[in-house]
Each structure stands twice: as C-alpha cells, then as structure tokens.
C-alpha cells in the first residue's frame, strides 16, 4: 500500500513515528505492571496545545490499530469541540472507524467522564490527564512526592480530606477525588467527578492515563481494586441528583445543568450524550411498536 493509495497525508499511521510509539508502548506495559504508579515518558509535541488532551492522544496513537473503533468524549459528550477534533484527528491520521456508541467502541478516549454504560472486557479507556500527581497541590516538589510514593507516605492526603471535613462538615472534594489502587499507590483519577470513582473499581476494561504536559503515563488493569480515600466516620459518597434526566428520565446518572434562557430557566440532563440518546431511541421504538404516536 503506497501513500497515494491511502489518501493519507505524509505522516505515519496514527501520526506518531514508530520510535515514539515504542517508547510510549514500553511505558504503558510498565504502567500496567505497576498499577497506579506514574511512569515518566518522553512526551512529544502534538499538533494541538497542551491541555487539549495531548497525553491521551499519544496513548491512543500508540495503541490503536486499523481494526479498532474509536470513541472520544469530552465531559461525557461526543459532540463538543475537543471530542470532535480528536475524533477527526484519528480519522485523518489513522483512517480508523469512529463511533459515538459506547458499546461499539474498542478504544474510548475521554476527558473527565467515564461512560454510564458498563465497559466490557477488551475495551480500553484512555483518560486525558492535566495533573497526574495527586499530591502536587500539597507538595510542589517532584523529589518529595516521588519519595512519598516510594515510602507509601500518604498522610498528607488524609490531612487534606480531614481539613475539608473540619471546614465544611463533609469531604468537599468533588472531582479528581484521590483513590488507592490495589492497596498501594494513591492515584489521581483525572478530573472526573467523584460520581465516576466507583466505576473504576474492578472495571472489566483496561484504563490508561496519559498526561502530555506532565509527561506521565499510568494505568489500572482490568479487575483491579480502586478505593476512594475516606474515613470510617465520613465514608466516601457519590453525588446524588434530586431529579432524573429531563430528556430521557434516567436516574442514578451524572447530570449536567443546561441554561435555557436568561430568565433563570434551566434543566438537568445526562452528561453522557450517547447514553441519553440510546435511551431516548429505545423509548421511541417501544412506543412506536405499541402503536402510539411519538
């Protein structure tokens, strides 16, 4: 197959050169072998700015093959700028099939959400991570945080959660809520809402995390214990929503607030657009088969 046949521009499959992919692949394998440990890697400049998912893009580019089906979400949505542009990036550079359906995807790159539909064996969830170090805002020195991880010295993180309770009466951390992986490493789950933390635990899919600017890759293998940090008298709790999704009526899902007008009108609907659309599609087909007008 020559370049002319493919119609692709003159760069390698999935944009990255092979040596870069090998370097990232070696890091990914180490990350899988040491769940929750942040493996340093030589992050490359990508044709998008830091903060737009360069870490996730490099991980995806290193694992994806021509047979894969890619889904990209940004805060749960398939249709926002970041998701659309990354999906197009891989359509153009790798020629892979893309989808918005969670169940059809083999690789899902995500910014700040985990899909509502349970993930399956064989799927890979790739997170875009801004700050991979959970201790960074407590201790700015890399030399110190590295030592803290080495010695499994995570008291500072508990102090932080305790100060939350002292000030607010409850743990006020609502996103990037720290977790402990396989009883060893404290890990930043990326700025996903803490609502999604329980989905990471014992997940059937492989979870890979890429931080481009901070040059770190980490991983959670399938069926691995992921525990949100808490206290006996202040156990971890997920956010609850008072009403169901205004569009599909789903309960027990993460909702986004939508501003409807400039008079205070608002509604709450699923943050996971694919989940919401599939539910509405099913509801329509059910009522259609019952002979109702929809």
């Amino acid at each position: 197959m020559t370049l002319q046949d493919t119609g692709l521009a003159a760069y390698n499959f999935a944009y990255l050169d092979e040596q870069t992919k090998r370097m990232i692949r070696r890091a990914i394998l180490k990350a899988i072998a040491i769940p929750g440990y942040q493996v340093p890697f030589a992050s490359r400049e990508m044709p998008m700015p830091y903060g737009w998912g360069t870490g996730g893009v490099q991980v995806t580019a290193s694992i994806i093959g021509p047979e894969d089906v890619l889904k990209v979400i940004d805060q749960g949505s398939d249709d926002t700028t970041n998701a659309v542009s990354i999906r197009k990036f891989f359509e153009k550079t790798a020629g892979v099939e893309t989808t918005t359906r969670t169940g059809e995807a083999t690789v899902i790159q995500t910014r700040h959400r985990i899909p509502e539909a349970p993930l399956k064996e064989g799927q890979v969830l790739v997170y875009q991570v801004p700050i991979p170090e959970p201790l960074r805002f407590l201790e700015p020195r890399e030399t110190e945080t590295r030592k803290m991880h080495a010695l499994e010295e995570y008291g500072l993180m508990h102090v932080k959660l305790y100060e939350d309770i002292a000030r607010n009466g409850h743990i006020a951390t609502t996103y990037a809520y720290p977790v402990k992986v396989e009883g060893r490493y404290v890990m930043d789950p990326s700025p996903t809402p803490k609502f999604d933390n329980p989905k990471m635990d014992n997940c059937a899919a492989l979870q890979l995390f890429g931080a481009g600017r901070e040059k770190r890759i980490y991983a959670i293998p399938p069926y691995t214990s992921v525990v949100s940090l808490d206290f006996e008298d202040h156990p971890f709790e997920v956010n609850r929503f008072e009403q169901p999704c205004a569009l599909c009526g789903a309960e027990g899902v993460y909702l986004d607030e939508m501003i409807l007008d400039d008079k205070g009108g608002r509604m709450f609907c699923c943050s996971d657009t694919d989940f919401c659309e599939e539910r509405r599609g099913e509801a329509e087909s059910v009522s259609a088969s019952n002979g109702e007008i929809v």
Binding site: F13, R22, R25, I64
Partner: peptide
C-alpha cells in the same frame, strides 16, 4: 509491515500483561 505488525505485536503484549 513495520507499522502494522508492531501494533499487532503490541496489542498482544498489552493484552497479555493486563490479563
């Protein structure tokens, strides 16, 4: 095929280590 064979080889290794 340097590119596609390496991807297949890596997918096998990634699956092997994650399962």
């Amino acid at each position: 095929n340097q590119v596609l064979d390496a991807q297949i080889g890596f997918a096998a290794l990634m699956n092997a280590l994650s399962r």
